[in-house]
C-alpha cells in the first residue's frame, strides 16, 4: 500500500489540467491489465479487449466528472467499466449459467488444488456458485465481483458504483448470504 501526498496524487489525480491526456495514459498503463482481467472474467477476453479501450475513452471524454474527493481513479475506472458491462448483462448471465451447466472443471484454475480437496466436491461447489451468481440481482453481483474479482474494498466498490458505502456493504452481505445459503443447500442435497 502506498501512502503520502505523492501517492494520493497518483491515486486521485487531477484530470482537469492540460496534462490530463498524459495522466490518463499513465492510468492506462497502471490499470488496463487488471481491468481486463476483471472484464474478461465477467464476459470473455475479446469483449474485454474492447471494453478496456472503451472505458478509457469514456474516462477521457468524461474526465471533468471525475472528482478526486469522491474516490480513487481506480474505483472510477472500474465504475465506468461496470456501467459498460450492463450492455452485456444478459450475455453475462447466460455465460454464468453455461458455466454452471458445463461443470466446475472450467472454473478451476489449479487442478492440483482440486485434487487436494476432492475434485467432485470442488466442482459441485463451483457449479453452485456460478449458478447463484447468475441468479443474483445485478447490483449485488456487481459489488460482489468488484470485491472478489477486482480486489476493490467494499468502500472502493461504493465509490465505483456511486452508491453509499452502507448500500455497498448491504449488497455485498446479501450476495454472500445468498451464496452461502445455496451452497449449504447443495451440500445438504448431496
Amino acid at each position: 500500500m502506498t501512502s503520502g501526498p505523492g501517492a494520493d496524487q497518483h491515486e486521485r489525480p487531477d484530470l482537469t489540467g492540460a496534462d490530463a491526456g498524459t495522466v490518463l495514459a499513465g492510468l492506462y498503463d497502471a490499470h488496463a491489465r487488471p481491468l481486463h482481467r476483471y472484464l474478461s472474467r465477467r464476459l470473455d477476453t475479446e469483449t474485454a479487449d474492447d471494453l478496456v479501450a472503451e472505458t478509457f475513452l469514456a474516462a477521457w471524454t468524461g474526465r471533468a466528472h471525475y472528482d478526486p474527493a469522491r474516490g480513487t481513479a481506480r474505483a472510477w475506472l472500474y465504475g465506468i467499466a461496470t456501467n459498460l458491462l450492463r450492455r452485456h448483462a444478459r450475455r453475462e448471465v447466460r455465460g454464468l449459467r453455461a458455466l454452471a451447466r458445463d461443470g466446475g472443471r472450467a472454473c478451476i484454475a489449479d487442478p492440483l488444488d482440486a485434487v487436494a480437496v476432492d475434485r467432485a466436491d470442488a466442482e459441485g461447489r463451483l457449479r453452485a456458485a456460478a449458478r447463484t451468481l447468475a441468479a443474483l440481482r445485478r447490483e449485488e453481483r456487481d459489488v460482489l465481483l468488484l470485491v472478489a474479482w477486482a480486489d476493490l474494498t467494499p468502500a472502493e466498490a461504493a465509490e465505483a458504483l456511486d452508491i453509499h458505502p452502507r448500500t455497498a456493504r448491504t449488497r455485498l452481505h446479501r450476495a454472500r448470504t445468498t451464496l452461502r445459503r445455496k451452497l449449504r443447500t447443495q451440500e445438504t442435497d448431496r
Binding site: R41, C107, I108, A109, L126, L133, L145, A148
Partner: peptide, 10 residues
C-alpha cells in the same frame, strides 16, 4: 470460492 471461478482467463 468466487475468486476461483474463471480464474484461469488469459
Amino acid at each position: 470460492l468466487v475468486r476461483r471461478l474463471r480464474a484461469g482467463r488469459p
